[in-house]
């Protein structure tokens, strides 16, 4: 078996507020293999966006990476100096941002924004080479060459998101973290942008972490699925297997909450709300909403364990 491209081990990201430490990401571990597309899903406040920022090492005070390791290409990102980390960004680890509408500098033409990232990573290009590279990048994301000379406000949301995709592949990184890249777009554009990302992933052999809350979108587009809840990893596994037989009750509820056309007008959600990350419940964080909770769940934090090859779950039903 090959080494995974990215290994996250026991990562903890806390936000220190007056009332105490908010455990936004608490003891999360996972591996990302080469060329694999992994979905990271969870409700709002489950820590998935914090996870993305942590991987980029862009957690701002009062937040802090408390402990853990993030190993990319043999380097522990947690320990890198700020300047070393800057050099990693875009070159090895790139991000597609959430709100494409505001992710581009409003006063700079697209070509200059695409180029400056490369320039700051030591790429030396003549004027012709720059133009050629910009043209190539735009073509890869299905944008017309004339977009190069345009300003962000002259582009639609979908086009802007394509520009950020072009930006993220400009240094051909190993891993791309896409933080809800399509959440601000309508379903048609969403589809097109996802197709572009999928095609590029295959063409360039990228590994992608796709963050989102749309289980339907995930089912269609990712190889592996990771489910987060209240800062903790609940379950990781191959997407098909997860949908066929979810092990964690939370995963099951998430899948069951997808609307089904035959049951028009019937919505099944997950009752209750996410717990406070400041004072998470004792034992399993999900026991307050879990239909299958029993005594042990209220007392002991379940271990995140590999129950089948490549299938990890944190639930006493499967590990106790």
């Amino acid at each position: 078996m090959t080494e995974p491209v990215l290994q996250v081990k026991n990562l903890k990201v806390y936000y220190y507020v007056e009332a105490g430490a908010v455990k936004a990401v608490d003891d999360v571990s996972f591996d990302l293999d080469f060329g694999v597309k992994m979905g990271l899903v969870g409700e709002s406040g489950s820590g998935k966006s914090t996870m993305a920022l942590a991987l980029m090492r862009m957690i701002r005070p009062p937040g802090k990476i408390e402990s853990g390791q993030m190993i990319l290409d043999g380097m522990d990102l947690v320990k890198l100096s700020e300047e070393k980390m800057r050099q990693i960004r875009l070159r090895k680890l790139a991000m597609i941002p959430q709100g494409a509408m505001n992710a581009l500098n409003p006063v700079m033409r697209i070509d200059r924004q695409l180029v400056d990232g490369m320039l700051d990573h030591g790429v030396v290009m003549s004027k012709e080479e720059r133009e050629a590279r910009v043209g190539q990048l735009l073509e890869m994301v299905d944008l017309a060459p004339k977009v190069a000379k345009m300003y962000p406000h002259e582009l639609s949301g979908g086009m802007q998101q394509r520009v950020t995709v072009a930006q993220s592949i400009s240094m051909e990184p190993d891993v791309i973290i896409a933080d809800e890249p399509t959440s601000a777009l309508d379903v048609v554009i969403q589809r097109q942008v996802m197709d572009t990302i999928n095609r590029l992933q295959q063409r360039l052999g990228l590994s992608i972490i796709l963050i989102g809350h749309d289980m339907g979108l995930m089912a269609q587009s990712v190889d592996r699925l990771a489910v987060m809840y209240a800062g903790k990893m609940m379950e990781i596994g191959e997407t098909r297997a997860m949908f066929r037989s979810p092990l964690h009750p939370y995963t099951r509820l998430l899948i069951e909450s997808l609307p089904v056309l035959e049951n028009k007008g019937v919505f099944s959600g997950i009752p209750g709300i996410t717990p406070s990350l400041l004072n998470p419940p004792e034992g399993c964080v999900f026991h307050t909403r879990c239909p299958k909770a029993w005594d042990l769940c209220r007392e002991k934090i379940p271990e995140f364990a590999e129950v089948q090859p490549g299938r990890w779950v944190a639930c006493h039903l499967h590990t106790a």
Binding site: M56, R86, L90, P97, Q98, N105, D116, G117
Partner: peptide
């Protein structure tokens, strides 16, 4: 606090470029 500053940082731009070209310019 704007998204384009966050994205500029995620692009691994040098601090000086983010300061002058992205923040100050705006």
């Amino acid at each position: 606090g704007q998204d384009y500053i966050t994205f500029a940082e995620a692009k691994g731009l040098r601090g000086s470029r983010i300061f002058f070209r992205y923040a100050l310019r705006n």
